[in-house]
Structure formats: C-alpha cells, structure tokens
C-alpha cells in the first residue's frame, strides 16, 4: 500500500534498557482517525513519543521503522526533524496549560510558533480559523493570556494553532482526558469537523473507549506494550476478538445502567519483555501453550487483526 500516510512497522521502543513497546505495526491512510486505546502503562504515550522522535523524551527506537508519507523518519537528524514537526506532524498534548506560557498572550505565542516554522502569521487568517471552529469572541481571543482561559478553551487554542500550521498528521495524546465532560465533547466534535472539512489525519491516543467510538475510523487496543487488536472501529467494538478487549468493554459503564464488570490484577510491568502472551495472568481462557506461543497479530476477519481468539463467541 503506497498511499499510506503513516506506516509503523514492527516498532520496538525502549527507555534505557527497558522495553516499553514491542513489535507494534499499523498503517494509517490520509483522512483517517486512528485511535489507540489502552490502560495506563500500556505504552500508548510512548508510541506518540516515538513518532515525534524527540530524543530528549527518552524513548529510543530499537527496531522497526516509522514511514511518513513515503519517507522513512525513523532516524532523522535534529534539524530535519525540526522541519517536519509542526508543519507535517502536529501535536496536541494532554496538558496544554503546560505547553503555552501562562502569562504571555496567545498573539505573541502564535507568532513565535509560526515564525519558528518559517510561516507568516496572519491575524485575519487566525480569526477566520477561530470562526470556522466556532470559538466564541473570535476577534478578541488572541489578546487573551492562557491563565484567563478554561482548560477546555486552552486545548482548543492549541488545536487552532495546529490548524494554522497545517500539518498532514495530528498526534493527540490524551488530548481530552483532563477536560470536563462538556468541553471534552466540544473538542471531540471540533476534531471530527476538521477531519471532515480539511481532510486531517489524526492519531488519537486515549484510555476512554467512549471517546474513541465517537471519532475513530480505526481502533487499536494496546496491552502491556503490545497491540493486541486492531481494525475498523465498528468491527472491534461490535465483535471484539481478543479476551482483553472484551474485558475492557465490559468494564465501561454503559447505557443499560448495569454495573460494569471489572478485571482483577494489573498488567505486568515488564510485559513487553515476555516471550508468550502477556495477558495470561489475567486471562480466563489461557492454556499452557499461551505462555510460550510467540506474540503475533493475525488477520482474523478482513481488516480486523488480533493476537488471540480465545473465548470468542461466533
């Protein structure tokens, strides 16, 4: 498939000597929203760090490759990397309070960001962009300083900045998880709108499957450093194959107002280092062979991959 925007092949990422992600592969087409979901410590944020590739973040790519629009960006130099960040890869972090300087106006900070990417800052264009995103008081927004804004508005300003820079690929790392539910919904709707109008591609990392189900086209479920299931969102949610995905879905409070069902224990910290399946200690279907059978993501149904099919109801 030549027309993939982002291809991640067999990616293994380490922090120091410690493996965080093993053998993750997936591909994204232009205009797609891909969600990677999983619980804390599953390596989903590390995945974003690997794509951003900033050395200071500590993530080190040991094996595999990351291909953006046909170009291998796995081992780019600092200067080349700087050129693609922002203009080709945009990034919305979890905590935008920390990524804007709290006591300088958005105006100054927008200018700075644009200038560092050799782009001209045009106030009229910025305000047009705010209008398109339905921001209230769009003509006054630039004069504000981040501390005067709510967390949700701040997050939306970060998205607007990313829009102005016009990247091909947006990376969102838990971009809505610190927000209140009402602002979360606004941000989600904005992102979906941007995809529809501008043909954005978004890689969205979240622990909230509810959020994923509202915007994603494809869904990947990660567990202890491995991708255990990947496929079209409807296929994964309607017919979850991996035992972990089913457990995860059962743990979410649903519309039926029935008490959610939990999952005892926690993921193994060194799960990415294991040879066999690392869900074994918490799995009700596991057999002895699971402990030794090497991890492999298989295409079970066309467009729907999983590393295990135990206990699947057909």
């Amino acid at each position: 498939m030549a027309n993939n925007l982002l291809e991640i092949n067999d990616l293994t990422v380490t922090y120091g000597d410690f493996k965080i992600i093993t053998e993750v592969s997936f591909a994204m087409k232009p205009g797609e929203i891909v969600c990677i979901a999983g619980e804390s410590g599953c390596g989903k944020s590390t995945l974003i760090k690997a794509v951003l590739g900033i050395k200071q973040l500590g993530a080190h790519i040991k094996k595999g490759s990351i291909v953006l629009d046909g170009r291998d960006i796995t081992h780019l130099g600092v200067e080349e990397r700087r050129q693609i960040l922002g203009t080709q890869i945009g990034y919305v972090p979890q905590n935008t309070r920390g990524s804007f300087n709290n006591i300088r106006s958005y105006d100054v900070q927008y200018q700075e960001a644009m200038r560092s990417h050799n782009k001209k800052f045009n106030r009229v264009e910025a305000i047009k962009c705010f209008d398109r995103l339905n921001f209230p008081d769009s003509d006054k927004l630039l004069a504000y300083q981040p501390w005067e804004m709510s967390g949700g508005m701040n997050q939306r300003m970060a998205i607007a900045l990313a829009v102005l820079l016009g990247p091909k690929l947006m990376l969102c790392d838990e971009a809505t998880s610190v927000l209140d539910v009402t602002s979360q919904k606004e941000v989600i709707e904005e992102l979906a709108k941007l995809r529809n109008e501008l043909g954005w591609s978004i890689l969205f990392i979240t622990h909230n499957l509810g959020v994923a189900s509202h915007i994603a086209d494809k869904l990947g479920v990660m567990y202890a450093g491995r991708m255990v299931e990947y496929g079209d969102i409807r296929k994964v949610l309607d017919d979850p194959i991996h035992p972990y995905t089913r457990k995860l879905l059962a743990a979410i409070p649903g519309k039926d107002r029935k008490l959610p069902v939990g999952l005892e224990g926690r993921p193994p910290l060194d799960g990415a280092e294991w040879e066999g399946c690392n869900f074994v200690p918490r799995c009700e279907y596991c057999t002895d062979s699971c402990k030794t059978r090497p991890y492999k993501l298989q295409e079970i149904v066309p467009g729907h991959y999983a590393s295990c099919t135990s206990g699947r109801s057909v």
Binding site: S40, K247, A251, L259, P260, G262
Partner: peptide, 14 residues
Amino acid sequence: LDVSAQAMIMQYLY
C-alpha cells in the same frame, strides 16, 4: 483509575 480497576471497585462497593 483505569476502567478495569474502576469496575472492580464498583463491584465491591455494590
């Protein structure tokens, strides 16, 4: 907490 841990707590509280 993660959803799976949240669901466990809710069950015990129930």
